[in-house]
Amino acid sequence: MEPIKHEEGIFYMEKDGQRVAEITYAPAGDGKINANHTYVANELRGGGIAGQLLDALADYAREENLKILPTCSYVVAEFSRGGKYDDVNALAK
């Protein structure tokens, strides 16, 4: 597996030149980004890849002083647990 790559709007991983996992985001105004989609190929599910991608997105948000608006079901679920993403969760109280 190759390391996580970042382009505007997406963090992703490739294997043998094929994209096998991704988390996408879009500007949401007021210093926010909308985490709107997460995908991990079937053969890689359960291996923590989605969490690694979310960690990369959260680190990016911290570096850029942004908050993440969770609309992707995976991100919503992870944010609902509280804890390590509270500082970047746009919906946290």
Rank of each mutant, 00 (worst) to 15 (best):
Q18I: 14
Y74I: 06
G51A: 12
H37W: 08
L44K: 08
V76K: 10
M1C: 11
G17I: 07
H37E: 07
D87Q: 10
E43P: 10
E22V: 06
E78M: 11
F11T: 01
Y12E: 03
A35L: 04
G51C: 10
S73T: 12
I4H: 00
I49D: 00
A92L: 10
V40N: 02
D87K: 11
P70M: 03
G17A: 05
D55N: 15
H37C: 07
T38M: 04
R81T: 12
E22W: 05
A21H: 04
T24R: 13
V88Y: 00
L54E: 01
L66W: 00
A50W: 02
N36S: 10
I4R: 02
G31T: 05
K15V: 14
V75P: 00
N34V: 07
A21Q: 03
Q52I: 09
I68H: 01
E7W: 09
K32C: 09
L54S: 03
G51H: 12
K93M: 12
G9R: 07
G29A: 10
C72V: 02
Y74E: 02
I68K: 01
I68S: 01
L69W: 06
D86V: 07
L44Q: 06
R81D: 10
E14V: 13
E64D: 10
E8I: 08
R45N: 09
G83Q: 04
K15I: 12
R62V: 05
A58M: 03
Y25A: 05
A90R: 04
E64G: 09
S73I: 08
K15Y: 12
K15H: 14
Y74N: 03
A35K: 01
G48T: 13
M13S: 04
G48W: 12
N65A: 14
